[in-house]
Design a protein around this nucleic acid. Structure first.
Length: 505
DNA sequence: ACGAATCCTG
DNA sequence: CAGGATTCGT
Protein backbone atom coordinates (compact mmCIF):
# COMPACT_ATOMS: atom_id res chain seq x y z
CA UNK A 1 0.00 0.00 0.00
CA UNK A 2 1.38 3.32 -0.87
CA UNK A 3 1.74 5.67 1.94
CA UNK A 4 0.16 8.92 1.29
CA UNK A 5 0.92 11.84 3.43
CA UNK A 6 -1.80 12.92 5.62
CA UNK A 7 -0.78 16.22 6.77
CA UNK A 8 -2.55 17.51 9.73
CA UNK A 9 -1.41 15.16 12.36
CA UNK A 10 1.35 15.82 14.72
CA UNK A 11 3.33 12.79 13.78
CA UNK A 12 3.42 13.91 10.27
CA UNK A 13 7.08 14.42 10.21
CA UNK A 14 7.75 11.20 11.86
CA UNK A 15 5.82 9.46 9.23
CA UNK A 16 7.45 11.22 6.42
CA UNK A 17 10.77 10.64 7.90
CA UNK A 18 9.98 7.05 8.02
CA UNK A 19 8.79 6.93 4.51
CA UNK A 20 12.03 8.49 3.63
CA UNK A 21 14.13 6.22 5.71
CA UNK A 22 12.37 3.03 5.09
CA UNK A 23 14.67 0.58 3.42
CA UNK A 24 11.95 -1.69 2.34
CA UNK A 25 10.37 1.07 0.43
CA UNK A 26 9.21 -0.03 -2.92
CA UNK A 27 10.78 3.01 -4.31
CA UNK A 28 14.16 1.81 -5.30
CA UNK A 29 15.72 5.14 -5.75
CA UNK A 30 14.93 6.06 -2.23
CA UNK A 31 16.56 3.10 -0.67
CA UNK A 32 19.50 3.49 -2.94
CA UNK A 33 20.04 6.95 -1.80
CA UNK A 34 19.64 5.99 1.74
CA UNK A 35 22.28 3.40 1.39
CA UNK A 36 24.51 5.93 -0.14
CA UNK A 37 23.78 8.17 2.75
CA UNK A 38 24.69 5.51 5.22
CA UNK A 39 27.85 4.78 3.40
CA UNK A 40 28.82 8.37 3.41
CA UNK A 41 28.28 8.88 7.05
CA UNK A 42 30.19 5.78 7.75
CA UNK A 43 33.05 7.05 5.72
CA UNK A 44 33.17 10.17 7.74
CA UNK A 45 33.51 8.12 10.82
CA UNK A 46 36.25 6.13 9.27
CA UNK A 47 38.05 9.24 8.35
CA UNK A 48 37.73 10.55 11.83
CA UNK A 49 38.87 7.37 13.42
CA UNK A 50 41.86 7.20 11.16
CA UNK A 51 43.12 10.66 11.85
CA UNK A 52 41.11 12.35 14.53
CA UNK A 53 42.94 15.60 14.28
CA UNK A 54 43.73 16.20 10.71
CA UNK A 55 40.46 15.72 9.02
CA UNK A 56 38.14 18.22 7.56
CA UNK A 57 34.97 16.72 8.81
CA UNK A 58 35.81 17.07 12.42
CA UNK A 59 36.84 20.56 11.71
CA UNK A 60 33.57 21.25 10.09
CA UNK A 61 31.70 19.96 13.01
CA UNK A 62 33.65 22.16 15.31
CA UNK A 63 32.85 24.97 13.04
CA UNK A 64 29.24 24.10 13.24
CA UNK A 65 29.31 23.93 16.98
CA UNK A 66 31.14 27.17 17.23
CA UNK A 67 28.80 28.84 14.89
CA UNK A 68 25.85 27.55 16.79
CA UNK A 69 27.26 28.73 20.05
CA UNK A 70 27.79 32.13 18.59
CA UNK A 71 24.29 32.25 17.35
CA UNK A 72 22.89 31.30 20.68
CA UNK A 73 24.99 33.89 22.36
CA UNK A 74 23.79 36.42 19.93
CA UNK A 75 20.24 35.46 20.52
CA UNK A 76 20.54 35.71 24.24
CA UNK A 77 22.07 39.10 23.92
CA UNK A 78 19.25 40.26 21.75
CA UNK A 79 16.63 38.80 23.98
CA UNK A 80 17.83 40.85 26.85
CA UNK A 81 17.11 43.95 24.92
CA UNK A 82 13.53 45.00 25.22
CA UNK A 83 12.08 44.56 21.79
CA UNK A 84 10.35 47.86 21.56
CA UNK A 85 13.47 49.77 22.25
CA UNK A 86 15.07 48.64 19.10
CA UNK A 87 15.03 51.48 16.71
CA UNK A 88 12.93 50.75 13.75
CA UNK A 89 15.59 51.80 11.39
CA UNK A 90 17.70 48.90 12.48
CA UNK A 91 15.14 46.39 11.37
CA UNK A 92 16.43 46.17 7.91
CA UNK A 93 19.86 45.97 9.25
CA UNK A 94 18.97 43.20 11.58
CA UNK A 95 17.24 41.41 8.86
CA UNK A 96 20.28 41.69 6.76
CA UNK A 97 22.44 40.45 9.53
CA UNK A 98 20.26 37.47 10.07
CA UNK A 99 20.30 36.83 6.45
CA UNK A 100 24.02 36.79 6.55
CA UNK A 101 24.05 34.41 9.42
CA UNK A 102 21.74 32.21 7.56
CA UNK A 103 23.93 32.30 4.56
CA UNK A 104 26.96 31.46 6.56
CA UNK A 105 25.15 28.49 7.96
CA UNK A 106 24.23 27.49 4.51
CA UNK A 107 27.78 27.77 3.40
CA UNK A 108 28.73 25.56 6.24
CA UNK A 109 26.22 23.05 5.13
CA UNK A 110 27.58 23.11 1.67
CA UNK A 111 31.04 22.51 2.92
CA UNK A 112 29.91 19.61 4.97
CA UNK A 113 27.99 18.12 2.22
CA UNK A 114 30.74 18.48 -0.27
CA UNK A 115 33.18 16.89 2.03
CA UNK A 116 30.84 14.12 2.63
CA UNK A 117 30.29 13.62 -1.01
CA UNK A 118 33.95 13.77 -1.67
CA UNK A 119 34.79 11.12 0.81
CA UNK A 120 31.88 9.18 -0.41
CA UNK A 121 33.05 9.16 -3.98
CA UNK A 122 36.43 7.96 -2.96
CA UNK A 123 35.43 5.21 -0.68
CA UNK A 124 32.05 4.17 -1.72
CA UNK A 125 32.95 0.76 -3.04
CA UNK A 126 35.09 -0.01 -0.10
CA UNK A 127 32.31 0.98 2.14
CA UNK A 128 29.96 -1.34 0.40
CA UNK A 129 32.28 -4.19 1.02
CA UNK A 130 32.28 -3.38 4.63
CA UNK A 131 28.57 -3.28 4.61
CA UNK A 132 28.42 -6.67 2.99
CA UNK A 133 30.87 -8.14 5.37
CA UNK A 134 28.88 -6.84 8.22
CA UNK A 135 25.65 -8.22 7.00
CA UNK A 136 27.12 -11.66 7.32
CA UNK A 137 26.86 -11.05 11.00
CA UNK A 138 23.29 -10.07 10.65
CA UNK A 139 22.13 -12.43 13.29
CA UNK A 140 24.40 -10.72 15.69
CA UNK A 141 23.24 -7.34 14.67
CA UNK A 142 19.66 -7.94 15.47
CA UNK A 143 20.11 -6.69 18.95
CA UNK A 144 19.54 -3.26 17.52
CA UNK A 145 22.45 -2.20 19.59
CA UNK A 146 22.46 1.37 20.51
CA UNK A 147 23.98 4.64 20.36
CA UNK A 148 24.19 5.41 23.96
CA UNK A 149 26.56 2.62 24.58
CA UNK A 150 29.61 2.66 22.47
CA UNK A 151 31.54 -0.44 23.19
CA UNK A 152 34.91 -0.38 21.68
CA UNK A 153 35.88 -3.94 21.30
CA UNK A 154 39.09 -4.97 19.68
CA UNK A 155 39.05 -6.47 16.28
CA UNK A 156 36.50 -7.81 13.87
CA UNK A 157 32.86 -7.01 13.97
CA UNK A 158 33.07 -5.69 17.46
CA UNK A 159 34.76 -2.54 16.35
CA UNK A 160 32.41 -2.44 13.48
CA UNK A 161 29.63 -2.21 15.93
CA UNK A 162 31.39 0.46 17.80
CA UNK A 163 31.81 2.21 14.56
CA UNK A 164 28.19 1.91 13.87
CA UNK A 165 27.29 3.34 17.19
CA UNK A 166 29.68 6.15 16.75
CA UNK A 167 28.33 6.74 13.36
CA UNK A 168 24.83 7.05 14.68
CA UNK A 169 25.90 9.35 17.41
CA UNK A 170 27.83 11.55 15.13
CA UNK A 171 25.14 11.61 12.57
CA UNK A 172 22.60 12.71 15.09
CA UNK A 173 24.84 15.26 16.61
CA UNK A 174 25.91 16.67 13.32
CA UNK A 175 22.43 16.94 12.07
CA UNK A 176 21.12 18.39 15.24
CA UNK A 177 23.88 20.90 15.65
CA UNK A 178 23.80 22.37 12.24
CA UNK A 179 20.11 22.39 11.76
CA UNK A 180 19.49 23.80 15.18
CA UNK A 181 21.66 26.67 14.29
CA UNK A 182 19.78 27.25 11.17
CA UNK A 183 16.51 26.98 12.90
CA UNK A 184 17.59 29.51 15.38
CA UNK A 185 18.34 31.94 12.68
CA UNK A 186 15.25 31.04 10.85
CA UNK A 187 13.05 31.58 13.84
CA UNK A 188 14.55 34.89 14.44
CA UNK A 189 14.29 35.83 10.86
CA UNK A 190 10.68 34.86 10.77
CA UNK A 191 9.91 36.83 13.84
CA UNK A 192 11.70 39.79 12.52
CA UNK A 193 9.86 39.56 9.31
CA UNK A 194 6.53 39.25 10.93
CA UNK A 195 7.16 42.20 13.11
CA UNK A 196 8.43 44.16 10.28
CA UNK A 197 5.78 43.60 7.74
CA UNK A 198 3.91 46.74 7.13
CA UNK A 199 0.41 46.84 8.46
CA UNK A 200 -1.93 45.59 5.87
CA UNK A 201 -5.01 47.41 5.02
CA UNK A 202 -7.68 44.96 5.62
CA UNK A 203 -10.30 45.35 3.12
CA UNK A 204 -13.36 45.69 5.18
CA UNK A 205 -16.80 44.87 4.08
CA UNK A 206 -17.56 48.27 2.82
CA UNK A 207 -15.72 48.17 -0.36
CA UNK A 208 -15.58 44.63 -1.43
CA UNK A 209 -18.77 43.18 -0.18
CA UNK A 210 -20.85 45.66 -1.94
CA UNK A 211 -19.96 44.53 -5.40
CA UNK A 212 -19.87 40.98 -4.37
CA UNK A 213 -23.57 40.54 -4.50
CA UNK A 214 -24.14 41.13 -8.04
CA UNK A 215 -25.02 37.92 -9.54
CA UNK A 216 -26.95 36.20 -6.88
CA UNK A 217 -27.82 39.02 -4.70
CA UNK A 218 -30.47 38.08 -2.32
CA UNK A 219 -28.85 35.20 -0.66
CA UNK A 220 -25.28 34.62 -0.36
CA UNK A 221 -24.40 31.09 0.38
CA UNK A 222 -24.28 30.25 3.97
CA UNK A 223 -20.66 30.76 4.76
CA UNK A 224 -20.27 34.12 3.45
CA UNK A 225 -18.81 35.57 6.53
CA UNK A 226 -15.87 33.30 6.64
CA UNK A 227 -12.51 34.84 6.13
CA UNK A 228 -13.64 37.79 4.17
CA UNK A 229 -11.55 40.00 6.31
CA UNK A 230 -8.51 38.21 5.14
CA UNK A 231 -8.71 39.70 1.76
CA UNK A 232 -5.90 42.07 1.42
CA UNK A 233 -5.04 44.69 -1.00
CA UNK A 234 -2.20 43.75 -3.20
CA UNK A 235 -0.20 46.92 -3.59
CA UNK A 236 0.78 47.16 0.02
CA UNK A 237 1.69 43.59 -0.12
CA UNK A 238 4.03 43.79 -2.99
CA UNK A 239 5.82 46.61 -1.36
CA UNK A 240 6.12 44.86 1.89
CA UNK A 241 7.43 41.88 0.12
CA UNK A 242 10.23 43.38 -1.76
CA UNK A 243 11.72 45.92 0.51
CA UNK A 244 13.32 44.00 3.32
CA UNK A 245 14.95 41.40 1.22
CA UNK A 246 17.77 42.58 -0.90
CA UNK A 247 18.18 39.21 -2.40
CA UNK A 248 19.87 38.86 -5.65
CA UNK A 249 17.29 36.31 -6.43
CA UNK A 250 13.86 36.07 -5.06
CA UNK A 251 12.89 32.50 -5.33
CA UNK A 252 9.29 32.70 -4.48
CA UNK A 253 7.79 35.59 -6.15
CA UNK A 254 4.91 33.54 -7.11
CA UNK A 255 2.97 35.96 -9.12
CA UNK A 256 1.46 37.98 -6.41
CA UNK A 257 0.92 40.86 -8.61
CA UNK A 258 0.53 39.30 -11.93
CA UNK A 259 0.33 35.75 -13.08
CA UNK A 260 3.71 34.28 -13.64
CA UNK A 261 4.77 33.29 -17.02
CA UNK A 262 5.05 29.65 -17.64
CA UNK A 263 8.68 29.88 -18.30
CA UNK A 264 9.28 31.47 -14.96
CA UNK A 265 7.42 28.83 -13.14
CA UNK A 266 9.04 26.09 -15.02
CA UNK A 267 12.36 27.59 -14.43
CA UNK A 268 11.58 27.66 -10.82
CA UNK A 269 10.48 24.11 -10.82
CA UNK A 270 13.55 23.02 -12.58
CA UNK A 271 15.82 24.95 -10.35
CA UNK A 272 14.34 24.08 -7.07
CA UNK A 273 12.67 20.87 -7.83
CA UNK A 274 12.60 18.03 -7.87
CA UNK A 275 11.95 17.11 -4.31
CA UNK A 276 13.93 14.86 -2.06
CA UNK A 277 16.85 17.10 -1.83
CA UNK A 278 18.18 15.46 1.22
CA UNK A 279 16.99 12.04 0.53
CA UNK A 280 18.83 12.12 -2.71
CA UNK A 281 21.80 13.74 -1.10
CA UNK A 282 23.04 14.46 -4.49
CA UNK A 283 21.67 17.87 -4.49
CA UNK A 284 23.54 20.78 -5.73
CA UNK A 285 24.58 23.18 -3.06
CA UNK A 286 21.83 25.44 -4.18
CA UNK A 287 19.14 23.11 -3.28
CA UNK A 288 20.35 23.15 0.23
CA UNK A 289 19.94 26.78 0.74
CA UNK A 290 16.97 27.58 -1.33
CA UNK A 291 14.40 25.84 0.73
CA UNK A 292 15.17 28.30 3.38
CA UNK A 293 15.03 31.23 1.19
CA UNK A 294 11.78 29.96 -0.04
CA UNK A 295 10.42 29.52 3.38
CA UNK A 296 11.63 32.82 4.52
CA UNK A 297 10.28 34.59 1.55
CA UNK A 298 7.02 32.88 1.79
CA UNK A 299 6.59 33.49 5.40
CA UNK A 300 7.17 37.05 4.61
CA UNK A 301 4.78 37.02 1.79
CA UNK A 302 1.91 35.60 3.58
CA UNK A 303 2.42 37.44 6.74
CA UNK A 304 1.40 40.24 4.54
CA UNK A 305 -1.45 38.30 3.15
CA UNK A 306 -2.84 37.37 6.41
CA UNK A 307 -2.85 40.89 7.51
CA UNK A 308 -2.60 39.72 11.00
CA UNK A 309 0.34 38.71 12.99
CA UNK A 310 0.38 35.32 14.46
CA UNK A 311 1.99 34.84 17.73
CA UNK A 312 5.23 33.05 17.87
CA UNK A 313 6.68 31.67 14.78
CA UNK A 314 5.54 31.91 11.29
CA UNK A 315 1.99 30.99 10.99
CA UNK A 316 1.19 27.77 9.31
CA UNK A 317 -0.49 29.51 6.50
CA UNK A 318 2.55 31.59 6.20
CA UNK A 319 4.25 28.65 4.71
CA UNK A 320 1.87 28.85 1.84
CA UNK A 321 1.22 25.20 1.76
CA UNK A 322 -2.38 25.07 0.86
CA UNK A 323 -2.77 21.37 0.96
CA UNK A 324 -0.89 20.91 4.13
CA UNK A 325 -2.69 22.21 7.09
CA UNK A 326 -0.21 22.02 9.83
CA UNK A 327 -1.27 23.15 13.18
CA UNK A 328 0.93 25.39 15.13
CA UNK A 329 2.00 22.40 17.14
CA UNK A 330 3.29 20.82 14.03
CA UNK A 331 5.19 23.86 13.15
CA UNK A 332 6.70 23.86 16.53
CA UNK A 333 7.60 20.29 16.22
CA UNK A 334 9.29 21.23 13.05
CA UNK A 335 11.34 23.75 14.85
CA UNK A 336 12.05 21.38 17.64
CA UNK A 337 13.01 18.50 15.56
CA UNK A 338 15.31 20.67 13.65
CA UNK A 339 16.39 17.96 11.36
CA UNK A 340 17.61 17.96 7.89
CA UNK A 341 14.65 15.89 7.17
CA UNK A 342 12.33 18.64 8.11
CA UNK A 343 14.15 20.87 5.75
CA UNK A 344 13.73 18.36 3.10
CA UNK A 345 10.11 17.93 3.85
CA UNK A 346 9.45 21.60 3.80
CA UNK A 347 11.13 21.76 0.53
CA UNK A 348 9.15 18.95 -0.88
CA UNK A 349 6.02 20.54 0.22
CA UNK A 350 6.85 23.87 -1.07
CA UNK A 351 7.67 22.40 -4.38
CA UNK A 352 4.53 20.46 -4.64
CA UNK A 353 2.71 23.54 -3.63
CA UNK A 354 4.46 25.35 -6.37
CA UNK A 355 3.40 22.75 -8.78
CA UNK A 356 -0.12 23.11 -7.70
CA UNK A 357 0.00 26.78 -8.18
CA UNK A 358 1.35 26.15 -11.57
CA UNK A 359 -1.40 23.77 -12.33
CA UNK A 360 -3.95 26.15 -11.07
CA UNK A 361 -2.81 28.93 -13.21
CA UNK A 362 -2.10 26.86 -16.17
CA UNK A 363 -5.34 25.17 -16.16
CA UNK A 364 -7.36 28.09 -15.10
CA UNK A 365 -8.14 26.48 -11.87
CA UNK A 366 -8.35 23.01 -13.10
CA UNK A 367 -11.82 23.27 -14.37
CA UNK A 368 -10.70 20.80 -16.85
CA UNK A 369 -10.52 17.38 -15.66
CA UNK A 370 -8.97 14.91 -17.87
CA UNK A 371 -6.32 15.62 -20.33
CA UNK A 372 -4.45 18.17 -18.45
CA UNK A 373 -4.46 16.08 -15.46
CA UNK A 374 -2.94 13.20 -17.23
CA UNK A 375 -0.31 15.37 -18.75
CA UNK A 376 0.40 16.67 -15.38
CA UNK A 377 0.83 13.34 -13.89
CA UNK A 378 3.13 12.15 -16.58
CA UNK A 379 5.21 15.15 -16.10
CA UNK A 380 5.46 14.67 -12.43
CA UNK A 381 6.37 11.09 -12.61
CA UNK A 382 8.58 11.24 -15.59
CA UNK A 383 10.21 14.55 -15.96
CA UNK A 384 10.13 15.86 -12.51
CA UNK A 385 10.60 12.53 -10.92
CA UNK A 386 7.98 12.98 -8.38
CA UNK A 387 7.50 10.16 -6.08
CA UNK A 388 4.30 8.43 -5.46
CA UNK A 389 3.43 10.30 -2.36
CA UNK A 390 3.54 13.61 -4.03
CA UNK A 391 1.78 12.35 -7.07
CA UNK A 392 -1.03 10.77 -5.20
CA UNK A 393 -1.37 13.88 -3.18
CA UNK A 394 -1.74 15.85 -6.32
CA UNK A 395 -4.20 13.44 -7.74
CA UNK A 396 -6.26 13.70 -4.66
CA UNK A 397 -6.02 17.42 -4.70
CA UNK A 398 -7.29 17.66 -8.20
CA UNK A 399 -10.00 15.25 -7.39
CA UNK A 400 -11.09 17.29 -4.44
CA UNK A 401 -10.98 20.35 -6.52
CA UNK A 402 -13.33 18.87 -9.04
CA UNK A 403 -15.68 17.88 -6.35
CA UNK A 404 -15.76 21.24 -4.79
CA UNK A 405 -16.08 22.99 -8.08
CA UNK A 406 -19.06 21.02 -9.22
CA UNK A 407 -20.73 21.08 -5.88
CA UNK A 408 -20.58 24.82 -5.94
CA UNK A 409 -21.93 24.88 -9.44
CA UNK A 410 -24.90 22.80 -8.58
CA UNK A 411 -25.56 24.73 -5.45
CA UNK A 412 -25.58 28.06 -7.15
CA UNK A 413 -27.54 26.81 -10.10
CA UNK A 414 -30.25 25.58 -7.81
CA UNK A 415 -30.20 28.80 -5.95
CA UNK A 416 -30.64 30.74 -9.13
CA UNK A 417 -33.68 28.68 -9.95
CA UNK A 418 -35.13 29.21 -6.54
CA UNK A 419 -34.51 32.87 -6.96
CA UNK A 420 -36.70 32.82 -9.96
CA UNK A 421 -34.15 33.19 -12.66
CA UNK A 422 -35.89 32.05 -15.78
CA UNK A 423 -33.52 32.40 -18.62
CA UNK A 424 -30.20 30.72 -18.88
CA UNK A 425 -28.96 33.95 -20.36
CA UNK A 426 -29.40 35.53 -17.01
CA UNK A 427 -27.02 33.14 -15.45
CA UNK A 428 -23.58 34.52 -15.38
CA UNK A 429 -20.37 34.29 -13.48
CA UNK A 430 -18.28 37.32 -12.87
CA UNK A 431 -15.58 38.16 -10.48
CA UNK A 432 -18.21 39.72 -8.32
CA UNK A 433 -20.36 36.65 -8.19
CA UNK A 434 -20.80 34.86 -4.98
CA UNK A 435 -19.96 31.72 -6.80
CA UNK A 436 -16.68 33.08 -7.86
CA UNK A 437 -15.98 34.30 -4.41
CA UNK A 438 -16.74 30.94 -2.95
CA UNK A 439 -14.28 29.27 -5.25
CA UNK A 440 -11.73 31.91 -4.83
CA UNK A 441 -12.05 31.64 -1.14
CA UNK A 442 -10.97 28.07 -1.20
CA UNK A 443 -8.33 28.06 -3.80
CA UNK A 444 -6.98 31.51 -3.94
CA UNK A 445 -7.73 32.88 -0.58
CA UNK A 446 -4.75 35.12 -0.49
CA UNK A 447 -5.30 36.22 -4.02
CA UNK A 448 -2.02 34.76 -4.97
CA UNK A 449 -2.81 34.90 -8.58
CA UNK A 450 -5.16 36.49 -10.96
CA UNK A 451 -7.79 34.04 -11.90
CA UNK A 452 -7.84 33.88 -15.66
CA UNK A 453 -10.86 35.10 -17.52
CA UNK A 454 -11.05 31.78 -19.13
CA UNK A 455 -11.91 30.29 -15.85
CA UNK A 456 -14.84 32.59 -15.50
CA UNK A 457 -16.07 31.66 -18.90
CA UNK A 458 -15.93 28.02 -18.18
CA UNK A 459 -17.45 28.46 -14.79
CA UNK A 460 -20.29 30.32 -16.37
CA UNK A 461 -20.93 27.65 -18.92
CA UNK A 462 -20.84 25.07 -16.21
CA UNK A 463 -23.28 26.97 -14.14
CA UNK A 464 -25.57 27.38 -17.08
CA UNK A 465 -25.39 23.69 -17.83
CA UNK A 466 -26.41 22.91 -14.33
CA UNK A 467 -29.08 25.51 -14.46
CA UNK A 468 -30.77 24.22 -17.54
CA UNK A 469 -30.36 20.62 -16.56
CA UNK A 470 -32.04 21.24 -13.27
CA UNK A 471 -34.64 23.40 -14.90
CA UNK A 472 -35.53 20.52 -17.14
CA UNK A 473 -35.63 18.20 -14.17
CA UNK A 474 -32.89 16.15 -15.62
CA UNK A 475 -31.51 15.76 -12.18
CA UNK A 476 -33.96 12.99 -11.58
CA UNK A 477 -31.60 10.86 -13.56
CA UNK A 478 -29.00 9.56 -11.17
CA UNK A 479 -26.23 10.18 -13.62
CA UNK A 480 -27.41 13.47 -14.92
CA UNK A 481 -24.16 15.17 -14.08
CA UNK A 482 -22.14 13.11 -16.43
CA UNK A 483 -23.50 14.90 -19.41
CA UNK A 484 -22.41 18.14 -17.90
CA UNK A 485 -19.00 16.83 -17.10
CA UNK A 486 -18.60 15.90 -20.71
CA UNK A 487 -19.49 19.35 -21.88
CA UNK A 488 -17.07 20.94 -19.53
CA UNK A 489 -14.33 18.62 -20.55
CA UNK A 490 -14.69 19.79 -24.08
CA UNK A 491 -14.22 23.33 -23.00
CA UNK A 492 -10.93 22.29 -21.76
CA UNK A 493 -8.27 24.18 -23.52
CA UNK A 494 -5.46 22.23 -25.00
CA UNK A 495 -2.31 21.85 -23.11
CA UNK A 496 0.24 23.89 -24.97
CA UNK A 497 2.77 21.88 -26.87
CA UNK A 498 5.67 23.73 -25.44
CA UNK A 499 4.72 22.65 -22.04
CA UNK A 500 4.79 19.05 -23.03
CA UNK A 501 8.01 19.51 -24.83
CA UNK A 502 11.04 17.84 -23.31
CA UNK A 503 13.02 20.95 -24.00
CA UNK A 504 11.67 22.19 -20.75
CA UNK A 505 13.50 19.49 -18.97
C1' DA B 1 -9.76 -7.85 -12.91
C1' DC B 2 -7.66 -3.65 -12.48
C1' DG B 3 -6.66 1.14 -12.37
C1' DA B 4 -8.90 5.43 -12.31
C1' DA B 5 -12.60 8.39 -10.94
C1' DT B 6 -16.17 9.38 -7.90
C1' DC B 7 -18.71 9.16 -3.65
C1' DC B 8 -18.76 9.51 1.18
C1' DT B 9 -16.95 10.62 5.41
C1' DG B 10 -14.29 12.84 9.05
C1' DC C 1 -7.76 17.80 2.26
C1' DA C 2 -7.15 12.85 2.96
C1' DG C 3 -8.66 7.97 3.38
C1' DG C 4 -11.53 4.42 2.24
C1' DA C 5 -15.42 2.40 -0.17
C1' DT C 6 -17.67 2.17 -4.34
C1' DT C 7 -18.39 2.50 -9.08
C1' DC C 8 -16.85 3.07 -13.76
C1' DG C 9 -14.37 1.82 -18.00
C1' DT C 10 -11.78 -1.19 -20.46
Amino acid sequence: AEHTLSSNSADDFAREEQSCLSFKDEDLSVSEHLQAKRARVENIIRGMAASPNADGEAESECEAVRCRRDLLKENKRKQRLPQHQEPKTSKDEECHKLKEQLQSMQRLLHQLQEKILHVHDQNYSESEEREDARSEHSSLRLDGGHKDRVKVEPGGFGSDRAMKNLKETLKCELTRTVSESIDTVFKKLSTTLLNQSSPCHNLSDSEENVNSRHCFESHGPEHQTEALSLVVRKPSLSQAVKRPFPLHQTPFQMGYNAPLHDSQILEHLLKYGPHSTFCLERSSPDSVERPWESLAMRSKLSSGHLGQHQTGLVSVDALCLPHIKMERGDLQSMAERSSFMSLSISFERSVSSTLKRYCIQKRSWCYNLLMWFQTCRTLFNGQFLFNRCITSQLIKWFSNFREFFYIQMEKFARQAIIDGVNDVKDVSVTRESELFRALNMHYNKANDFQVPDRFLEVAEVTLQEFFSAISLSKDSDPSWKKAIYKVICKLDSVVPEDFKSPSYV
